[in-house]
Amino acid sequence: MKPSDYSLKRNWRGYLLVVPACIAIFLVSIYPMLYGISLAFQNYTLTKANSDDFRTFAGLKNFIEIFKQSEYIQACQNTLFWTLTNVIVQVVLAVLIALALNRKIKGRGFFRTTALIPWAVPSVIAALTFRFLYDANVGIINAVLKKLGILADGISWLGNLETARWAVVIESIWKGTPFVMIFVLAALQSVPHEMYESARVDGAGGVKTFFKITLPMIKETLGIATILTTIGTINNFNAVWLMTQGGPLGSTEIMFTYAYRRAFSAHNFGQAAAISVIMFIIIALCTFVYTKLIGEEED
């Protein structure tokens, strides 16, 4: 099949096929990204386009300035909370659901399909759906609570300082868990049945079997799913923006939405780019771990 040498003479067709995609990737992805990174080191405020220092080299000024902003520090803390709660709850829940759906239960196909539905729902629609469910006047949560006489007036779950961040996290868990579940279920199905049999013969209970046999077998997949969820959660603009726009009082603001706000409300592209670069470094580290994990899978 494959010729063993890399010579251009034998493989020119291959290069010809790969090159268009490479040029396209460079034009739509790499060049804008380099441009974006360069903005982080420039004085680039659109509203001050006529000032003398516009587009001049700024060194690390943008980075130093964002760390002086208390809103940015809050956005960092929120990002940490947002990512940790999302990833931990989604992974644990996904493992539990996958374990249940891997058993021979009646209606398994039906349950598997319905459990996947939130994954297929577009994120814009999921966010708007939950915004509706949480609404103080028309939301079903308030309607039920009022009907049961627990509440006299509706609570605005997304407008309330104590509840907003949890309300957004719940939507994100609803939307994200099935994705992790797909991975875990696929991994569980590849665990040989005999391994469970022999564990049962040895008298191991359900919990013990899980930690001694199942977990070691699915640990790589679990790692991959965790990393992908982490990246997806850090990048999850739609959920936050469409439900709260980072409010109330910045309580749901994450780094992504803050960078967006710095760029398109304050028109300070330099600072927005600086925040994006920090996010990019975090995500690149995650991606590096991911490449190691899929590399291991390959062998």
């Binding site: 990204m33 974006g36 990246i231 992504f256 990019f280 490449t291």
Partner: peptide, 22 residues
């Protein structure tokens, strides 16, 4: 190349939104 492409897949889109705006 393939690994490089993986990194471009993971970019935070806000990093691209700024240059694209210009």
């Amino acid at each position: 190349l393939k690994m490089g492409i993986l990194y471009t897949r993971m970019f935070p889109s806000v990093l691209l939104a700024l240059p694209y705006y210009v």
